[in-house]
């Protein structure tokens, strides 16, 4: 009886290269360095963009604040007692009544809104929803948020 020799593999053994080629390792390292560098660049770029955006918003905030104060002063000038009287007489041609008729009504007067408008309470902002776990993870990565 003839016996045919054959290789019998060991059960459970994995075919894996015994040694990672040096070139591949260097490539991986380079890729890691490149990714790290890219993240750094992205982070710096984002920080710079955010910095410019902050300054732009600060300028805008200052300008809007100044405009609000100017408008408040305008509102005050237009509602001064003698301006209202002058407007009533000169523009609307109103005159003091010779005979006044007063009617009382039971409807409550509308609520007075204090001027300037900055005394009016602003609506409170709602916090943004948290989002999915993978969104939060991405946001944690520097430069990718």
């Amino acid at each position: 009886m003839a016996v045919v020799p054959r290789t019998v593999g060991r059960r459970g053994a994995v075919a894996f290269p015994q040694r990672v080629p040096l070139l591949a390792a260097a490539g991986l390292l380079l890729i890691a360095v490149a990714v790290t560098g890219l993240l750094q660049v992205l982070q710096s770029s984002r920080a710079a963009t955010a910095g410019y955006e902050i300054r732009r918003l600060e300028r805008e905030h200052a300008e809007l604040g100044a405009e609000v104060r100017l408008l408040e002063a305008d509102v005050a000038r237009l509602t001064r007692v003698d301006a209202v009287r002058r407007d009533a007489i000169e523009r609307l041609h109103m005159v003091p009544p010779q005979q006044a008729l007063h009617i009382s009504i039971s409807t409550p007067a509308p609520a007075r809104v204090a001027l300037p408008s900055r005394y009016v309470p602003l609506p409170t902002t709602q916090p943004a929803p948290a989002g999915a776990w993978w969104e939060r993870l991405l946001r944690r990565l520097p430069g990718l948020d």
Partner: peptide, 9 residues
């Protein structure tokens, strides 16, 4: 609530 004195920029 009327501003008697106010500062403008």
């Amino acid at each position: 609530g009327y501003p008697l004195a106010i500062s403008i920029d």
